[in-house]
Design a protein around this nucleic acid. Structure first.
Length: 291
DNA sequence: CTGTCCCTGATT
DNA sequence: AATCAGGGACAG
């Protein structure tokens, strides 16, 4: 699932095909909660506008247009943003995959899950936003306005420090895992990197947040930043649906220490990795290394 | 602060 | 055919 590293990898690749290009057409699926801004308005706002920048805020992508307005995107759980020409079975519907001969090179064609297609005046690929479960979001933001989804976010995970977590945890009895997933405290950490960071810091996912020491807060943030930076370098984690905008898999799933490794031996001590559910999210940890 | 819900494909 | 996965808004 896309968390900060996957969104950042996406940003870097999509930025190259987006910035400097002028929208000539906007195609969408029918109105749904996926579109915080209705398809008709989205089209009216975007056509004729030129993209000038693509930034990341937590797990959101924020594209700036030449009139000072912005296009806000969230990939949700299964969102995929890519340019035309990307080929990967992960980008195809099950029907399309079944139709493929073994080893056949598939080329992407928009399917029922492709909710947004941007075409441009300038030569180059289209940009597609595909999202099977439709937990992603698209919104247009007028010049000078800030979307409430952005104003709710805490400090970006790559800019946070131990102090950020220390202050946020003092009065919270919820498990530390829950606080790390709270985008209003630190923006960008999701289920995979929360588990990985807590493993590297030696802190059990269930520990009441207020019971962390200052040193442990420093360690957790340092570990979170280390794993996320490393993940960005390797192209993100392709565990379920995520693919890079060029259609290729990321590499970080091979470096995971605990996430989705239930029952496998801990890489440090050999104890079986355990899984339990915290606030409806699956959580993985080493019962020996994490206290 | 935790449970429910949105959605669909994979799995049982 | 029922269950599971999960980001984030919302309800209780």
């Amino acid at each position: 699932m896309p968390e900060l590293p996957e969104v950042e990898v996406t940003r870097r690749q999509i930025r190259r095909v987006l910035v400097g290009r002028t929208v000539s057409g906007v195609e969408t699926t029918r109105a749904s909660y996926f579109f915080l801004t209705r398809p008709a308005e989205l089209k009216a706002r975007l056509v004729g506008r030129r993209f000038v920048e693509l930034e990341r805020v937590g797990k959101y992508l924020l594209a700036e247009l030449d009139d000072g307005s912005h296009l806000l995107l969230h990939l949700g759980m299964t969102g995929q943003l890519f340019a035309a020409g990307a080929t990967s079975p992960r980008l195809l519907s099950a029907t399309a995959k079944r139709a493929l001969a073994p080893d056949a090179q598939a080329s992407f064609a928009p399917d029922a899950h492709t909710h947004l297609v941007l075409t441009f005046r300038e030569k180059g690929p289209n940009v597609y936003f595909r999202d099977v479960r439709k937990f992603g979001k698209v919104a247009w933001i007028a010049k000078g306005r800030e979307h409430e989804r952005l104003s709710k976010l805490g400090v970006d995970a790559l800019r946070a420090n131990g102090e950020t977590l220390w202050e946020a945890t003092r009065k919270r009895s919820a498990p530390i895992k829950t606080v790390l997933l709270d985008q209003g405290v630190i923006a960008g950490i999701g289920n995979i990197y929360a588990d990985e960071a807590l493993f590297l810091a030696g802190v059990r996912v269930t520990r009441p947040a207020r019971r962390l020491t200052r040193a442990e807060c420093d360690a957790v943030i340092a570990a979170a930043q280390r794993v996320m930076k490393r993940s960005i370098q390797t192209g993100g984690s392709s565990i379920s649906d995520y693919v890079r905008p060029d259609g290729s898999d990321g590499g970080y799933q091979d470096e995971r220490r605990v996430y989705a490794r239930t029952g496998e031996p801990c890489s440090k001590c050999g104890t079986a990795i355990q899984r339990l559910v915290i606030a409806t999210r699956s959580s993985h940890f080493c019962p020996s290394c994490q206290r």
